[in-house]
């Protein structure tokens, strides 16, 4: 007799647990309009706002006078674990003081090797480079991923030491 009661108890317990599971999925099915969490990505480009700190790509900030703050000290180059950054620097005579001063010729950035670890940004003494929250950098050609970050004709800002 005990075996029979436990047999039926098992069945009722099983049905009960199965129905509880179905209630959960059923709730989400019937409230799908409210509960759906997926976003439709390319369509929501305009409204999609990345977080400020999102690490998308390393940029060298230029102001409106086409001037940047990079002194070419190579701190970022040393801090980078992957050899992503290469700085080719030059020496130029300062017209005012007449002293020779180090300036950057090319700030080469290999995006394909970058792990976006942010170590270069925190190592920069003049806050010249920063992480930009932009994305969509996929290309068909690997060489597009090697970028020169300083804009042509750009100069170092006067006040940067």
């Amino acid at each position: 007799m005990n075996a029979i009661t436990s047999y039926f108890k098992d069945i009722f317990h099983a049905i009960k647990t199965l129905l509880t599971g179905m209630r959960v999925t059923g709730y989400y099915f019937s409230h799908a309009r409210k509960e759906i969490i997926t976003q439709q990505y390319p369509e929501n480009r305009d409204t999609l706002k990345m977080f400020d700190r999102f690490r998308g790509i390393v940029t060298l900030t230029h102001d409106e006078n086409n001037e940047h703050a990079c002194t070419g000290c190579s701190a970022c180059e040393i801090a980078c674990p992957n050899g992503t950054i290469e700085i080719i620097s030059d020496r130029e005579e300062d017209p005012e003081t007449g002293k020779k001063k180090k300036i950057i010729d090319k700030f080469i950035y290999h995006y394909s090797m970058c792990t976006l670890c942010n170590l270069c940004i925190i190592s920069c003494p003049t806050d010249a480079i920063k992480m930009d929250p932009s994305f969509e950098y996929a290309t068909f050609d690997r060489k597009d991923l090697t970028m020169i970050l300083n804009k042509p004709g750009s100069k170092i800002r006067k006040d940067v030491k």
């Binding site: 999925t25 989400y28 099915f29 799908a32 759906i36 997926t38 439709q40």
Partner: peptide, 9 residues
């Protein structure tokens, strides 16, 4: 139906 069960579109 599967999508709506799974909170997808």
């Amino acid at each position: 139906v599967a999508a709506f069960f799974q909170l997808r579109l």
